[in-house]
Amino acid sequence: MPQPIIEINNLHAGVEGKQILKGLTLTINPGEVHAIMGPNGSGKSTLAAVLAGKDGYDVTEGSVLFHGKDLLDLDPEERAREGVFLAFQYPIEIPGVNSTYFLKAALNEIRKHKGQPELDAMEFLSFIKDKIKLLDLPESFLKRPVNEGFSGGEKKRNEIFQMAVLEPTLAILDETDSGLDIDALRVVANGVNKLKRPDHAQLVITHYQRLLNFIVPDFVHVLTDGHIAKSGGKELALELEAKGYDWITKGERQPA
């Protein structure tokens, strides 16, 4: 059995004194795609934020090991360099910061961390050429400021494009389907699928089953009230789509 990519154990976390994650346990192995589904307010986005290292979230109990290392001890940039990537639900517009400059700086930080030589401007451009095509992005967007004036779909494609460039071992997709029409969803999902590797893993966070028609998970977990109430295969997503979340929320209140 290879070492898991991430082992989340009994994670308790909250924001501003409010407990949101209440004992979440999840292990993801190389090559696996996991989906986390759950109703609004169940803690999905908190999980993404805590894993990426966002300020303001307090972990009160539990642990997260990433390739065997204590992830929670690292700054957000150190997590990224170790191989964590968060595709934002709402990607941030950064006026005045050129997309190429930004992404080259990011890639070189990660390469430096891995002991690889940094890429110069020419090498960088040839490195990203195919990856741009993968996401069906016009090359002109590289000359624009990061996400500025991008449509919702372009922003999401840009997130996956960054994922393609930075090659994380764990990609966390936070509600990547939100705000996308079916064509945009197909492009994004197709990109994600092409980036699947036996030594990498993906954690797809979504409210709706729709995305999972395109990114087919190996495991589906239902998050309610801050912990995983039920896990299953991809068929669980269909069951949730048909029955809603209520039957799980109610069922899990009974003592085990």
């Binding site: 990426a52 966002k54 700054d75 940039e77 950064i94 005045g96 930004f102 990011a106 960054q162």
Partner: peptide, 27 residues
Amino acid sequence: DSIFYLRTRGIGLDNARRMLIHAFAAE
């Protein structure tokens, strides 16, 4: 939020701040 976004891409806090300040001047 902008600083956090840059950091999640591997860019350190100092450089993230620099990028944003420079961008503000560059406008």
